[in-house]
Write a protein that binds this DNA or RNA. Sequence first.
DNA 1: CAAAATACGTAACATACGATACAGCGCTCC
DNA 2: GGAGCGCTGTATCGTATGTTACGTATTTTG
Lengths: 275, 275
Amino acid sequence: MISSIAELIADRIGTMPAGERRAAQTLIASYPMIGLKTVAEFSTAAGVSSPTILRFVARLGFQNYPEFQSSLQDELAAQLQSPAIRTLNPPSPGGGTASPMLEATLDNMRETFRHLSDKQLADIAARLAERRGKTFLIGGRFTDPLARYMAAHLAVIQPDVFHLAGQESMWRDRLIDMSKRDVLVIFDIRRYQDSLVRFAEKAHQRGVQIVLFTDQWLSPIARFARHVIAGRTAVPSAWDSSAALFVVAETLIGAVTRQLEADGARRIREMEGLR
Amino acid sequence: MISSIAELIADRIGTMPAGERRAAQTLIASYPMIGLKTVAEFSTAAGVSSPTILRFVARLGFQNYPEFQSSLQDELAAQLQSPAIRTLNPPSPGGGTASPMLEATLDNMRETFRHLSDKQLADIAARLAERRGKTFLIGGRFTDPLARYMAAHLAVIQPDVFHLAGQESMWRDRLIDMSKRDVLVIFDIRRYQDSLVRFAEKAHQRGVQIVLFTDQWLSPIARFARHVIAGRTAVPSAWDSSAALFVVAETLIGAVTRQLEADGARRIREMEGLR
DNA sequence: CAAAATACGTAACATACGATACAGCGCTCC
DNA sequence: GGAGCGCTGTATCGTATGTTACGTATTTTG
């Protein structure tokens, strides 16, 4: 079974003429970067002519050079998405069903935060901590609990936080209440729900600022969103994992809380008193 | 110090107009693969026009698109040559607001699973996968979303899954429906809610098996619970973190799903058909 | 509310890229 | 030693790609 292009080359390099073999060796030497460059660069690096490179990729079974490059890119993408599998891990001692799941989840979180700058989080937190306007939260079939979770916390530390629950018709009516001073936090991962997309679009038209929690493939709502948080969701399970998004949500909750405390919000102190 | 393009984007994304921000978010979401493709592909993926992509890379300081791609490739090449750096941890000890929170959360998860044997999880999963009897889920003020999340998934793969929502009086009435064949999943972390404790006690008296998700200090409900999952909740924040419990919940959902698939549950297959 | 500035997309353009035809060279095998 | 075959590079071509100019829409500012 041949799964990577590198293996394919190793398999056929024996049957190649001299020029193409040089191409093959050059590619293997700094795999796969040279293959992502232009034919001209590849050819000079290998010390052969452009047509030789093209004959080389043709011999590997590709119709043309772009197709070859796409394959390399797909391979790279697959590698990058599962860093754990390559590098760490003798499948940890437990060997049970839980471990791979946990490892994948931890990786998801690291990856999610790697692509998420402190500044971005701070911006969102600052916006959520702004007192003007209302905050609405809503989620999809499986992610609505995340919206609820966030709403439950935010509602404690500031007024005018609303979780949009129930039927679509219910929250559509709430659109009337929304203006450009308001923020709408949406959770939407695959399979993206049409009803949510429609709702987001209408809210966007009303000037509402949208904060979107989605997966790495980006819900169509990203088009209308002011802020997009793309979390990793892939785990060895029949379901996608929302754990990374959950952690981001918690982080945001913490940041907003801190912000409001820093602002000396009277509400926080009053609350302390009530306990 | 800005070393990667991803950081560069994070740094400037705040000052970008809407279209370019979409481009930025799209790139970050599947970093850096989209950037290696053509402008046309990039633009359609981001839902903007080609010129917007070019303006985007121009704003990042690149003279033209190929130069931008070269930078991405160089970055990739550097990464591939030292894969260890990726796994050995977040390049940002940057003392930002996110990092300590994330680190604490990851630690919580490791600790939680360290004290949680595979067997224990398997037992609970097996119990939840049993067809006889019903499954009820409920949570506290901040943890009820976790109950909802779990219920949303379990309800898909098996019948008779109920999330207990609304007022206390509401679910107290549901006690009548519960018998010793049933399972009650409760989420309860500090400050433990009296109403939940009372409810758990009554359910326990009716012979209902209780699965408790709580924190390391154990809710009083632990006295009545058949299974106790103690998650770590401490994070540098004003709030406790339910993230570890969330991950355990997801793990359980996955385990139950697998179990039912293994049992050849007709329901699963029928569901596939309905899609 | 008006006017200016900014941002975005459509469409035309130029270039650089991959593809191909062809000729020269070397190698092998009679 | 000569003829045939195969491999490689040069030169040319067509096209897909990045680029730019301009008009429209949208937002911001006075």
